[in-house]
Design a protein around this nucleic acid. Structure first.
Lengths: 231, 231
DNA sequence: CGCGGCTTTGATGTTCATCAAGTAAAGTGG
DNA sequence: CCACTTTACTTGATGAACATCAAAGCCGCG
């Protein structure tokens, strides 16, 4: 490797626009030196509930689930998100340990920077601090809103809500491969696996969705919207 | 009023230790000039979902509920909190409008500062920024954790959880006056009013709690803990 | 080909919401 | 201060929604 030719990739990372927009050339260069880019395969755990928080991690590509494990060993999925919508932990400088686990639902790439370096940036660059704060706040609010949305709905409404969420926010397409098992959907919306499947079968029978293997097509978005709202 | 004698009360406010610890004499003085202290009676709405966010508000004394109104006009209570645990909105600089409403459950005092002034402080005082960020993060995490806790429990478990929360976190006493109606408890844990009452009656019959009017005494904390955990 | 995991469907029982009716408590106006 | 009105609380009965259990089908993988 020739160090002289090596250009800093962070300079042109799309992430720069989001959180690091306010960093000058010098800081970006330094960020690059501190960061480690690491691939994760589908199913890999990216960070684990209870572990000490040493790094600031952000998702560069892929798809992850944020979840926690309850006392009786069940998973409770908090949210499913794409890059830019996941930044290591909500309380970046709040607590010392992860409150939740994160695992890859698709092959993913995560960038990781020592938390101390981010803290330094935060203290020295007020624009950066403001951006980061706004972003983390928005993520928290999205999670809270989603959880409350789900809570007030009945089974059919919840399943419809998840399908619409995957369609609109995650895949931006009416046809996509479901990235989670039925059990994971159940863990997300807080229902039993059997009833999630039953509801999906109902949707299929009514011509609202169509499935072949892992692939799903949302046929009747309007009807799904009605079910989601009415639930 | 004699302006010369008027000392700045913010200097000795307990809140200073929490969010404003990092402010010097000058900033504190200025904060004082900008802030408005205002009492709210039980039942008053402090800030309303959808309204533009113009001020940074924090609870100085009293008790509030954070809630949102669903499409069919029902209230969904997000959390109930004491001073220091409520700071206007989670996304202080995130969005332009309140995502949730806040109302006083007891007579309360709220301090209010123009959001622009806080933003200025945030940009000019990095210690303040860090403190504020950590605090807001912690509040968000508490809310998310609470919502997830409640979600995995059954009716009895939820009611037990709320009683323990009021006892431990809000009143710090086994005897207290319930600050919310049965309907509000129901809106908090996402159950019907009738069933909340039924469960409370069960607890009473089993000698777990004792009530006279609005006053409640938690008699058997251990049993309540078991019910809450098993739920 | 056969094993193990995920999925699907049906039958059954539990939990919880809803409805209804009655009681207590808390305002409200004369 | 009392009758009146309204709101909150309480309890029982009923039915709907959902979990659980069980058995069978499917599918990928060694």
């Amino acid at each position: 490797m020739d160090d002289k030719i090596k250009t800093c990739l962070c300079e042109h990372c799309e992430f720069r626009d989001i959180v690091f927009a306010s960093l000058g050339e010098h800081d970006i260069r330094e960020l690059c030196d501190h960061k480690v880019e690491r691939p994760f395969s589908k199913g890999d755990v990216i960070s684990r509930q209870g572990d000490p928080i040493t790094h600031f991690k952000y998702l560069k590509s892929g798809l992850v689930k944020l979840y926690r494990v309850t006392e009786d060993g069940e998973q409770q999925i908090i949210t499913i998100t794409r890059p830019f919508e996941f930044i290591s932990t909500m309380s970046v400088f709040g607590g010392d340990n992860y409150k939740y686990s994160v695992a890859a639902l698709e092959d993913s790439v995560v960038c990781s920077v020592k938390i101390d370096f981010i803290k330094e940036l935060f203290l020295n660059n007020s624009r950066f601090a403001l951006n980061l704060f706004a972003r983390v706040s928005k993520i928290s609010e999205k999670i809270i809103g989603q959880t409350l949305d789900i809570r007030q709905k009945n089974l059919a409404g919840r399943v419809a809500y998840v399908l619409l969420y995957l369609m609109r926010d995650i895949f931006k397409s009416r046809i996509f491969d479901i990235p989670v098992s039925r059990k994971e959907i159940a863990d997300f919306i807080g229902m039993s696996t059997a009833n999630v499947i039953r509801t999906l079968s109902d949707f299929k029978r009514d011509g609202i969705i169509r499935t072949t293997g892992k692939t799903i097509e949302i046929v009747d978005v309007d009807k799904l919207d009605i079910i989601s709202k009415r639930g």
